[in-house]
Design a protein around this nucleic acid. Structure first.
Length: 315
DNA sequence: TGATGTTTAGGAAGCT
DNA sequence: AGCTTCCTAAACATCA
């Protein structure tokens, strides 16, 4: 294992699992969801080690995406042509890593079949309602902040702002660098992300359907009634049923003082996590550890996931 | 046809 | 020893 430090992982294999690497990639983007190809790019950009033997590790990565319930597949909208789906982290998988460290998972994240818990219809409606609520909150915050859209991904839900410990391997320390999303979505995150606010126009560029379809019309309250799409322009059905049902119960392998079922120790914000150069990856870099102070954002007022939005960790 | 996604299987390593 | 996590390989299906 390489000694932590700058440029540590230039050509050596990073100490992160594929699950961690994938989670990093997904977390690094404002939308918190990436197509497979972008996940590939992210990893190859950050870790030169993975620029070789692509077939091998990419196969493993795809395996992890499909196999692990902590990743959810989000179909593209019909007006979003492209190959493959988007991949996101399960809303309740934030507590998956110990102390937010990507070095080791605290527990395996497993989704419980809905029938094991409550009635499927009840759970589905709760999940859909939950997503709708989050969408409304996003829009409310957007309207309140003008050009900024708060980064209120569900990963942050329920995370105590008082959780100040930032593990050296936590996401914000690992990915603390400027990350230029391949394509049009290059952004300066020291400004937008450090405060938890991806720029609005950046999102409109990347996700025009969210704003142009009326679903994410910033001027009007979101109306999901009769619509099948969530705030991400994602069919709610795809999130609430099928092989990737949202309801799941995160259960820590070991009870931890800071972990509550369904609530994560994942850093509440991923502030300056896009501020470094790709080659300066340093798991122990303290550079972002002190940049966590951000003003109270609407994200802090987010409601907790409904009790039925639960996940389970298989011990 | 290649990329993407799913599933199964086996083995290494670490932990209890 | 048993369990869990992780890695790797491979076969197969689906889709743009």
């Amino acid at each position: 294992m390489p000694r932590p430090g700058r440029n540590t992982y230039s050509d050596q294999k990073p100490p992160y699992s594929y699950i961690s690497l994938t989670a990093m990639a997904i977390q690094s983007c404002p939308e918190k969801m990436l197509p497979l190809s972008e996940i590939y790019k992210f990893i190859m950009d950050r870790f030169p080690y993975y620029r070789e033997n692509t077939q091998r590790w990419q196969n493993s990565l795809r395996h992890n995406l499909s196999f692990n319930d902590c990743f959810i597949k989000i179909p593209r909208r019909p007006d979003q042509p492209g190959k493959g789906s988007f991949w996101a982290l399960h809303p309740n998988c934030g507590d998956m890593f110990e102390n937010g460290s990507f070095l080791r998972r605290r527990k395996r994240f497993k989704v419980v079949p809905v029938s094991d818990h409550l009635g499927p219809s009840k759970q589905q409606s709760d999940a859909a309602h939950y997503l709708q609520q989050q969408a409304k909150l996003r829009l409310s915050a957007l309207a309140a902040t003008g050009t900024h859209l708060p980064q209120m991904s569900t990963y942050n839900l329920g995370v105590s702002q008082s959780s100040t410990f930032k593990h050296p391997f936590a996401i914000e320390n690992i990915i603390a660098r400027e990350y230029k999303v391949p394509g049009s979505l290059a952004f300066s995150t020291m400004q937008s992300m450090s405060a938890g606010y991806p720029l609005h126009n950046q999102l409109t560029t990347a996700w025009p359907h969210m704003y142009n379809s009326g679903v994410m019309d910033t001027a009007t309250p979101i109306s999901m009634a009769g619509g099948d799409y969530s705030a991400y322009g994602v069919p709610l059905k795809s999130l609430c049923h099928g092989g990737q049902s949202l309801p799941a119960i995160p259960v820590p392998i070991k009870p931890t003082p800071t972990s509550m079922p369904g609530f994560s120790a994942l850093p509440p914000h991923i502030p300056a996590f896009l501020s470094n150069s790709p080659q300066s990856l340093s798991p122990t870099s303290p550079q972002t550890a002190t940049s966590q102070s951000s003003p109270a954002t609407p994200s802090e007022t987010l409601t907790s996931p409904p009790s039925t939005l639960q996940s389970v960790a298989v011990h």
